[in-house]
Design a protein around this nucleic acid. Structure first.
Lengths: 98, 98
DNA sequence: ACGAGATATTGATGACTGTCAACATAGACG
DNA sequence: CGTCTATGTTGACAGTCATCAATATCTCGT
């Protein structure tokens, strides 16, 4: 794994490396239709709405969540391709780590 | 993914979520025999030895690196099982995230 | 146009982290 | 025993981060 590759992958892992964001990703992915609006997600946490919004922004900015506004609601959807790439990098035989 | 699962997995990802530690894992895994001593690793970075030691400790404490002392040298080895578990959690169809 | 609800942004604060310099430990070899 | 080399530990500092309160923005319905 090259220097540049490491600098590129680390932010993705950092985005995932938070219990709240892990659960957010899980909730979004397992929600019906593969998408969820903030209102669905906020209820699952004992955190304020701005905090949830902040975590969603981190995940979106890092490319792990897609964001789509429909009316008043904003729907998030997991970027399964990005997740698959990450997973491959971590454990595939040719995956540079294992 | 449960609350407890998230709290358990996040520290593993946090340990990996650093460019230096990613490259350390990569170097250890790709080194001959699947193991490397600190002297082999330090040369690849423009960082002081204590800093490398610190990163190795983080990876070891989180369970991603095995540590074995042989004489004066300390050899590190990647925990491929832990990496495989992580990867599965991130992207497997039943993996809670995707 | 106005009010209400959903989501985002800003600013502040306490906690955590990567890094280094200095020092400590521990094994090998004379 | 003493020294040299490899590695780990401690303390400090600058930067980052998770969280909240307050505020802003946007959209629908009335």
């Amino acid at each position: 794994m090259t220097h540049e590759q490491a600098e590129q992958v680390a932010p993705l892992l950092k985005a995932l490396a938070d219990p709240v964001r892990l659960r957010l990703m899980s909730l979004v992915a397992s929600h019906e239709g593969g998408e969820a609006c903030v209102c669905d997600l906020s209820e699952a946490f004992d955190l304020t709405q701005p905090t949830i919004s902040h975590h969603l922004k981190v995940l979106h900015d890092s490319g792990l969540l897609d964001r789509e506004k429909r009316g008043v609601w904003v729907y998030y959807r997991a970027r399964t391709d990005a997740l698959a790439n990450l997973a491959a990098l971590i454990s595939a035989p040719e995956g540079a780590l294992a």
